[in-house]
Amino acid sequence: MLLAAIAAAFIWSFAEATIFFIVVDVLLTFIAVALGLRAALLASLAAAVGAACGGIWMWRLGQSDPEAGIRLLSSVPFVSNAMIAGGMAGMTEANWPLAMLRGSVTGIPYKIYAVAAGKEGLTALLFFGVTIPVRLARFAIATSVVAAVSTLLGRRLSRLHRLMLLATFWLVFYGEFWLRWSA
Rank of each mutant, 00 (worst) to 15 (best):
T168C: 12
A124E: 09
A51P: 01
A147I: 10
E16M: 11
W96P: 03
L153K: 07
H161R: 14
I132R: 06
E16P: 06
V49Y: 05
S13H: 07
I84M: 02
K119A: 14
I108G: 03
A117V: 06
A82C: 00
I22G: 08
L171G: 11
Y110D: 00
W178F: 13
E120W: 00
L28A: 10
E67C: 02
F173C: 10
E16F: 13
S44E: 02
A43P: 01
V115S: 04
A85K: 11
G129I: 12
L2I: 14
W178H: 10
G87N: 04
P66T: 05
A94G: 10
A34D: 09
Y174I: 06
T168V: 15
I112A: 07
F20Q: 03
A89T: 06
A15N: 06
V26C: 09
V49M: 06
V76I: 15
L125R: 10
D65Q: 14
G36K: 06
R71T: 10
L37V: 04
E120L: 01
L45M: 11
I112D: 00
S75Y: 03
R180C: 00
W59T: 04
W170I: 13
A183H: 10
R159K: 14
A124Y: 00
A51S: 15
I112Y: 03
A85C: 01
R38L: 12
S144R: 03
L125T: 12
W59M: 04
W59K: 05
S144Y: 04
S144A: 15
A94V: 14
F10L: 13
A32H: 08
I31S: 05
K111R: 15
V23D: 06
I132V: 15
K119N: 11
A85F: 04
G55L: 08
A46Y: 02
L152D: 00
L28M: 08
F10I: 08
L37G: 07
G175H: 03
L28S: 10
A116G: 03
L42Y: 11
M164F: 09
T151M: 12
L41A: 06
L122H: 14
V130K: 08
L166A: 09
G87Y: 00
A34N: 11
F30I: 08
A140S: 15
L125E: 09
S144L: 04
V79E: 03
S64D: 13
W12P: 03
I141D: 01
Q63H: 15
V146E: 08
I6F: 11
S80F: 01
V149M: 13
L28Y: 07
G118K: 04
T123M: 05
L3E: 12
L41D: 01
G36R: 06
L35A: 13
R102V: 14
L27R: 03
W57R: 02
A140R: 07
V146Y: 12
L171N: 02
L126M: 10
P77H: 08
T123H: 08
G87M: 03
R38D: 11
I141Q: 00
H161D: 09
I56K: 01
L157D: 00
M164H: 04
L165W: 05
W57I: 15
S104M: 13
A183P: 00
